[in-house]
Computed example of a mutant assay.
Amino acid sequence: MEKEPHWIGHRTAERRQTESGYVYRDPDNQSLAIILGISAFHTAGSLFDGANLWEVDRFVEGLEACNDPVAARYRARLSLIRELHKNGDLKACLPHASLINAEMRAQEVLESERRRSEALELACSLTAQRLFSGPSPSPSPSPSPSPSPSPSGVATAAKPSENVPPSRPGALRIGPNSKESTDTFIICRSREMYSEGTARTQREIAEALEREMKDAGYRGERGNYLSVATIERILPAGLTGGRAKNGRNA
Rank of each mutant, 00 (worst) to 15 (best):
A123M: 13
S117K: 08
L110S: 14
R75V: 03
L90I: 11
A51W: 08
E108F: 05
S125G: 01
F59L: 05
G62C: 00
L110G: 13
D68R: 01
N67E: 13
K91H: 03
A71Y: 08
L120E: 15
G50A: 10
D89N: 14
A106Y: 13
L53A: 05
N67Q: 12
C93Y: 09
R75Q: 13
I100E: 06
G50K: 06
N52P: 00
N52A: 13
L122Q: 11
A106R: 12
A72D: 09
N67F: 05
N67W: 08
V56T: 14
S125R: 13
V109K: 13
L78E: 14
L110C: 08
P95I: 09
C93K: 05
S98H: 15
L99H: 12
R77A: 12
A106I: 02
V109L: 13
V60Y: 02
L99A: 11
L47I: 13
A44R: 04
A71C: 10
A76P: 00
A76G: 12
R82N: 04
L47M: 15
E118V: 09
T43V: 02
K91E: 09
V70P: 00
V109D: 13
K86G: 04
L47W: 04
H42K: 13
G45R: 07
L120V: 11
C124A: 12
W54T: 04
V60M: 02
I81D: 03
V109S: 05
E64R: 12
L122K: 15
A44Q: 07
A65Y: 02
I81W: 04
I100G: 12
L78Y: 06
A97P: 10
R82M: 07
E121K: 14
F59W: 08
G62W: 02
L99D: 07
E55P: 03
M104P: 02
V60R: 03
G45C: 04
D49A: 14
A119C: 04
A97Y: 03
R58S: 09
R114A: 11
V70I: 07
E113T: 02
L122Y: 01
A76N: 13
A106G: 06
R82W: 03
L110M: 11
V70T: 09
R77L: 15
A76Y: 00
S79H: 11
P95W: 06
L122I: 00
L90M: 11
A76F: 01
S117M: 06
L47E: 04
L80Y: 07
S98L: 11
R77C: 00
V56P: 14
A106N: 09
A71H: 11
A119W: 03
V70H: 06
R75P: 00
A44I: 07
R75D: 07
K86I: 10
D57N: 12
A72E: 15
A106H: 10
V109W: 10
E111Y: 00
A65K: 14
R82L: 03
L84S: 03
Q107D: 14
E108Q: 15
